[in-house]
Design a binder for these strands. Structure first.
Lengths: 111, 111
DNA sequence: CTGGATCCAACGCGATACTG
DNA sequence: CAGTATCGCGTTGGATCCAG
């Protein structure tokens, strides 16, 4: 890709993306939701290190970014499903790139 | 891309990548160094919003990650050039993916 | 089960001043 | 020009408790 004049001063695209998927948890959440719809506690199970509070918070932000959809089932006990929106799906190439490089990086740094 | 068993619990590749290029500034610095070697103050000029202190700090961390090379010219006044290492170059696809999605995202969110 | 609210410690980061 | 050291504020985020 050419070094365009999106010069990262005004509305830098890279920064914009990181704004949305950056942080310690968002991309991981998105990654897990890429394949399957998950409930709140299912997400906690696949991400044992995130705290209850943070998961809630991150999910709210992903909702606001239109990347994640929240579906509430009016039941007792409550049931809430989280899934990617179609817009969220467009992040697939980005997450793939991150994952691919990460795999190589982990290999390299463990040598 | 298949949903492999890099399940993001133990040594998650995505997290590993973000560990290295994440944060508000690192990817931007890498982006600018992708095309050309730059001196300290040249970097500041293309990134007007970063503070002196933060630029120094981020550059040190990128050095430690082996992504950026620091070359000091023993002159007065001092001259220091920063460039990508060959390892740093391998991030090209990742940064491209971030940039491409960001461009679309900015378009979308401004509508 | 899902999730909000509060308290509080830890850290990030800017501002500033100082060096070779 | 390039870089370090110190201070101090603001935000982040963990622990905990409460609620539908």
């Amino acid at each position: 890709m050419p070094h365009t004049d999106y010069d990262c001063n005004l509305g830098c695209p890279i920064e914009a993306t990181l704004e949305v998927i950056g942080g310690k948890w968002k991309s991981i959440i998105l990654y897990h939701l890429m394949e399957e719809t998950l409930r709140f506690n299912e997400l906690r199970r696949v991400m044992p290190e995130i705290t209850h509070r943070m998961l809630t918070k991150q999910l709210r932000e992903l909702e606001q970014s239109q990347l994640v959809a929240r579906k509430v089932f009016p039941e007792v006990p409550p049931k809430v499903e989280y899934s990617l929106t179609s817009y969220g799906q467009t992040l697939h190439p980005v997450l793939s790139a991150l994952q691919i490089w990460g795999i190589e990086h982990l290999k390299t740094s463990s040598e």
